[in-house]
Every structure is written in structure tokens, then in C-alpha cells.
């Protein structure tokens, strides 16, 4: 009963936030920022356990997998564009992925975090299911990684517009790459708001970054921790 209620409230809060966001384009009203805030407040005030909530919303999370598979469609539609910028994307995303892993671990060390937390932070720049998978492989806490990935997405979509304004980054490909690399799915959604080319580049970046991080992180992280 409560589980079914969790499902309905999650969907309703999402639809509500989305309508609100459409009216007033503030990142603080982005569903990824406001919905978890509302839902956590509700769980705490009505003393509903996280287990109950998770059981009810399991299928929402499961839909992330077909949603990732769905990215085959924009990749296919924009394959000419992707071919054109293949070198830029391959090199740029490789560089971005290394920076993401190394900077997460280095800043984490600066704040004296434990090795297990550093392992959980290292893959935070890529999309949740892939990041959790890597976290598990290298000895982190997958659920903690999931929350780091979410916070990364929130920081990314708040910072993204400022970075695009303050730095000399003008090309559609560069814009798409920085959003897809910095803020995975959330950044990709924001890139689609700018334009369909930016969105396509961001979604490809997100996927390539995931693949590169899967290969590189298990080798790189033990060296730098």
C-alpha cells in the first residue's frame, strides 16, 4: 500500500516539478534537484522506511536500463555528425575521463576521505548504472556512488550555464561534450534544451565516457589512491 503510494508520489512530484520548470527555467526547480528534496522530506516526516520506498519505486529505477539502450536511436540518427567529429570526441572524452577520475580521487585525498570513499567517488562522472558497476569492481560502495553521481548531475546542470557563459567555449560539439562529460544524463538533458546537435553529442559523450571509464578506472585508481 505504502509502496504503491511511493510510486505514485514520485511520478506526481516529477510531473509537477517538470511543469513548474517549464514555466520558470531555474535549475533549482529542475526535477533532479527538487524531487529528491520533497520525497526525502516526505519519507522523514511520515516515517516511511527507505526499504518501503525503494520497493515501490524499483520499476522506475529499472527503466534506466532501457533508457540507456534508447540512446542507440540518437546515435544512429546523428551517425554522420559523429563520424565527422570522431577524433575530437574520442580524444576529448578520453582526456575528460582521465581528469574526472584523477580529480575526484585527488580532491578526495585533500579532504582526507577513506580509500573506500575514494573508490566510490572515482567513477562519479558517468551514468549511474555504469558508475555503480565500476564502483563494485574497484572496491567502492555502489549505493554511495549512485548518490555521488546524482550530486554530480545536480552540480553539473547548475554550473553548466555559467561555464558556458564565462569560458570561450562556443562550438556546438564542445558544449555538448562538456555537458555530457561533466554531468552524464542530467547534462545530456540540458544539452538537448540547447539544441539537438548539442544533445546528440552529449549523449554520445556520456556513452563513450562510460566505456572509457570502465576500461581505465580499474587500472588507474589503484595507482593514484
Amino acid at each position: 500500500m505504502l509502496a504503491g503510494f511511493s510510486f505514485i508520489i514520485t511520478i506526481l512530484s516529477y510531473v509537477g516539478a517538470k511543469l513548474l520548470y517549464r514555466k520558470k527555467q531555474s535549475v533549482f526547480l529542475s526535477p533532479l534537484v527538487i524531487c529528491p528534496f520533497i520525497l526525502i522530506s516526505l519519507l522523514l516526516s511520515f516515517q516511511v522506511s527507505l526499504e518501503t520506498y525503494s520497493a515501490g519505486t524499483q520499476w522506475i529505477t529499472n527503466m534506466l536500463q532501457p533508457a540507456i539502450v534508447a540512446f542507440a536511436v540518437p546515435l544512429y540518427k546523428y551517425r554522420a555528425l559523429l563520424k565527422k567529429y570522431a577524433v575530437e570526441i574520442a580524444l576529448g572524452v578520453f582526456g575528460g575521463s582521465i581528469v574526472a577520475i584523477v580529480s575526484s580521487v585527488m580532491y578526495g585525498k585533500l579532504f582526507h576521505l577513506t580509500p573506500q570513499l575514494l573508490d566510490s567517488l572515482a567513477p562519479r562522472s558517468i551514468t549511474t548504472p555504469l558508475a555503480m558497476n565500476i564502483s563494485q569492481t574497484i572496491g567502492g560502495l555502489p549505493a554511495m556512488t549512485a548518490s555521488f553521481v546524482i550530486v554530480t548531475g545536480i552540480v553539473g546542470i547548475i554550473a553548466g550555464p555559467f561555464i558556458l557563459k564565462w569560458f570561450p567555449i562556443h562550438h556546438q560539439v564542445s558544449k555538448g561534450m562538456l555537458l555530457g562529460m561533466g554531468a552524464h544524463g542530467a547534462g545530456t538533458a540540458q544539452a538537448y534544451e540547447i539544441g539537438s546537435i548539442e544533445g546528440a553529442i552529449a549523449s554520445l559523450t556520456m556513452i563513450v565516457a562510460g566505456i572509457i571509464t570502465i576500461i581505465v578506472a580499474p587500472m588507474l585508481v589503484p595507482i593514484i589512491i
Partner: peptide, 20 residues
């Protein structure tokens, strides 16, 4: 596919609540 991608953020919300 377009619908799933358009609503991508919804699928992250329960994991975000999981930080609890």
C-alpha cells in the same frame, strides 16, 4: 526511445532518494 530519453531524469530520482 524519444520518450525514455525525454524522461531520463525521472529514472534517477529513486536512487537520489536512496542517499537516505
Amino acid at each position: 526511445a524519444n520518450l525514455l530519453i525525454a524522461e531520463l531524469i525521472l529514472f534517477f530520482i529513486p536512487s537520489a532518494v536512496g542517499v537516505l
